[in-house]
Design a protein around this nucleic acid. Structure first.
Length: 664
RNA sequence: GCGCCUGUAGCUCAACGGAUAGAGCAACGGCCUUCUAAGCCGUUGGUUGCGGGUUCGAAUCCCGCCGGGCGCGCCA
């Protein structure tokens, strides 16, 4: 906002300079307007002269001097000075800064939003864990980051689609095992080897037993109603599949004497589908408690059922990108992705392969020649036994993301630290889909486009420290650390006297803020003891308290007959105290901060922004008394500033998915 | 062996390639008869792992070492 003003003044000055003997000035890149580190350097600084001195053929200081001369006439500036090697330092007239309070209030709750010069439709896929367990504290980081990233992208003017990919393909060995573990628990039999343990598995088993003890018709009726109301073809497909499962299970159930014998009789497939839907329901609930929502829960299996995967493979075979020749290409890649060595590894023909499954029909392995698109080895699409790999689904899935309304321009996929090996193969997958034309040149162009349109974001590992020791997070040891447990634990500790619902909100706020405080690509320690020890050590509360304080002042003011909206332009001119002006500048920066975060995915900077803003408000509050009945004009102006600060805090917290309470 | 991330104050971490590298926690000292003290003000703390390079300028970009985390399946 204020930065934009300075930037456009500089641009105007550059144009005038271009006419006055420095023609290169017309083609300088857009100037940057940064903060000054010290107050004596003024309000804002620009390095435009330093960056462009060479192109303009003038020494930086000389260029800066000429620009400063052009800028001096702008009415908003009190002073424009040249400093150091050639910085331009801008000092704004206080009334100009104060005047922005009016614009901030005019933008209201949409303060963080800005228009984008080239808005995109962006599909953001995140969390996407397997339906064999609850959302863990590890995935929590991806959930917090992904959802905040979506908020920020939207604020920056993009159209965002939030998506969760359900790995429910029939091939999944883990899901087969999960269902058998549940069956064993219901029957009181020993778990299968490597089976799933833990309270949450027992909870699923209890639920399944409960479901099997009653007629399923009500559930089927409900599903039929959903199906009638549903327009989306994929969603309809999922519902239809559920209906079929319910019918099969009901047939079993009605002929079985009790729930246990019914559980014994169910096929693994049907039991798996039951477990899966229960687990997904739980994941959805947990994520909702964490303020994470999705526009689409996309079922992998629906792609298989609809024949999309086979169609996709067919297309690639026809395009010559996939084939059954018995070899794999393996590349040794150098630092910058250049190919150092190409190794062609011959694969055994099926009739001479000793490992081939005996007595089973074998067919030739189908290879995706992904090395043509920068991957380090070719990938298998269909195994000898005929089963498809997950890469086969990924192909169809990514094609669908591009082709399904609203037809994504760009795909963002947020993955955990153990998935960084995916970047190469997913990029190759997308390149294979986007390729058209012939020859190596077409491959190269496709790879380039894939890199532009698919961004895989890897967040780094988060370690949970509790009682001075890392907390276990793995899934099968029966001691997984679920996100919802973290939320509830934080809430209980920090607000012991509150209702459970309120505790969850407190826990959610603290957990989200802590996750988001660190850049997604650094390893972080989440110290539970520190997060729960005492509320006043928490930056979350520091920020929220600032908001509650403002609300309190506004309530008092309202009781005394003041309204912040009553501040007129001449009232705002009374805001001249350094702490007042610093606060205005910070609030006005919110859209700029949001835009920066959207551009480089540095969502964590918003937490720093929120803390800075809260600090400036607290400092202002301490120095400048707001309510002064004997001075109504100043009171109106400061109330307007309070209102603006509240908008800034709400805006930043809103993007982070953290609530802004009115009382604390 | 190869790849991804990372190394900044005692601890946890910030810092569009910018000027004297900043916060919180921890330690110490002040400030409530007035709008929420969950607050404010002050003091203390650094060879940004090491060595080169790029340039007006490097914690940031490039190269090489050293240390830490994670990953390298016809599992998902």
């Amino acid at each position: 906002m204020i930065r934009d003003l300075v930037r456009s003044r500089i641009q105007e000055a550059l144009l005038r300079l271009a006419q006055a003997g420095v023609p290169e000035a017309a083609s300088f890149p857009p100037p940057e307007v940064s903060d000054t580190r010290q107050a004596e350097h003024g309000d804002y600084a620009s390095n435009v002269a330093l960056l462009n001195a060479k192109a303009a053929g003038h020494p930086p200081r000389a260029l800066a001097e000429r620009l400063a001369a052009e800028l001096a006439s702008a009415p908003e500036f009190e002073a424009v000075e040249v400093a150091g090697p050639g910085f331009l330092n801008f000092r704004l007239r206080p009334e100009v800064v104060a005047g922005f309070v009016g614009e901030i209030l005019a933008r209201g709750e949409r303060l963080a939003e800005s228009r984008h010069e080239s808005p995109q439709r962006i599909n953001v896929e995140f969390v996407s864990v397997n339906p064999n367990g609850p959302i863990t504290v590890g995935s929590g980081r991806g959930a917090a980051f992904g959802s905040a990233l979506c908020n920020v992208l939207e604020a920056a003017g993009h159209q965002v689609h939030r998506e969760y990919y359900i790995n429910d393909g029939v091939n999944s060995e883990q899901m087969r095992l999960f269902a058998e573990s549940v069956r064993a628990l219901i029957l009181g039999e020993p778990l299968p080897e490597g089976g799933y343990k833990g309270d949450y598995v027992q909870a699923v088993a209890d639920r399944v037993a409960e479901i099997l003890s009653r007629p399923l018709e009500p559930a089927a009726a409900e599903t039929r109603r959903d199906l009638e109301a549903e327009a989306d073809p994929w969603r309809r497909h999922v519902l239809r599949r559920r209906l079929e499962t319910l019918a099969r299970v009901e047939a079993q159930r009605s002929s079985a004497p009790d729930a246990r014998s019914c559980a014994r009789a169910l096929t693994n497939e049907d039991l798996k589908l039951l477990c899966e839907s229960l687990m997904i329901e739980r994941q959805r609930d947990d994520l909702r408690a964490f303020a994470v929502h999705f526009d689409t829960w996309f079922s992998e299996q629906s792609l298989h059922d609809a024949g999309e995967v086979e169609r996709c493979l067919q297309r690639l075979v026809e395009a010559g990108i996939a084939d059954t020749e018995p070899y794999q290409t393996v590349l040794k890649l150098g630092k910058n992705g250049e190919v150092l060595e190409t190794v062609r590894v011959e694969q055994p023909r099926d009739d001479e392969d000793d490992d081939a499954p005996e007595g089973e029909a074998v067919q030739p392995t189908l290879w995706l020649r992904s090395t043509r698109f920068g991957d380090d080895k070719d990938r298998v699409l269909r195994r000898r036994d005929g089963r498809l790999t997950y890469i086969a689904s990924d192909l169809a899935y990514h094609l669908d993301k591009f082709n399904r309304p609203p037809n994504a321009d760009r795909l963002v996929t947020v993955l955990g630290p153990d998935h960084h090996g995916y970047i190469g193969r997913l990029t190759a997958v997308v390149a294979a889909l986007l390729r058209h034309g012939e020859g190596e040149e077409a491959d190269r162009r496709a790879l380039e486009e894939a890199r532009r349109r698919l961004q895989v974001v890897i967040f780094q590992i988060v370690r949970f420290v509790k009682d001075g020791e890392p907390a276990p997070m793995r899934k099968r040891d029966g001691n997984i650390y679920a996100l919802i447990d973290l939320i509830e634990e934080l809430g209980r500790t920090m607000a012991p006297e509150e209702e459970p619902e309120r505790q969850r909100q407190v826990g959610k706020d603290v957990a989200r803020f802590f996750y988001l405080m660190r850049s997604h690509d650094t390893h972080m320690d989440f110290d539970i003891d520190l997060a729960t020890r005492r509320s006043d050590e928490n930056p979350v509360f520091y920020v929220q308290y600032a908001h509650a304080r403002i609300c309190s002042v506004l309530r008092k003011a309202s009781g005394a007959g003041f309204q912040p909206e009553q501040a007129a332009e001449e009232d705002l001119r009374l805001l001249g105290h350094p702490k007042e002006l610093a606060l205005v500048k910070k609030v006005a920066d919110l859209p700029y901060e949001a835009r920066r975060c959207a551009d480089d995915f540095g969502v964590h900077r918003l937490t720093t922004y929120a803390v800075d803003l809260a600090r400036l408000y607290h400092a202002f509050y301490d120095t400048c008394r707001v309510l002064q009945p004997e001075n109504p004009a100043l009171t109106r102006a400061r109330l307007a500033l309070c209102q603006a600060a509240a908008l800034g805090l709400r805006g930043a917290l809103g993007l982070l998915g953290v609530s802004a309470p009115e009382r604390m």
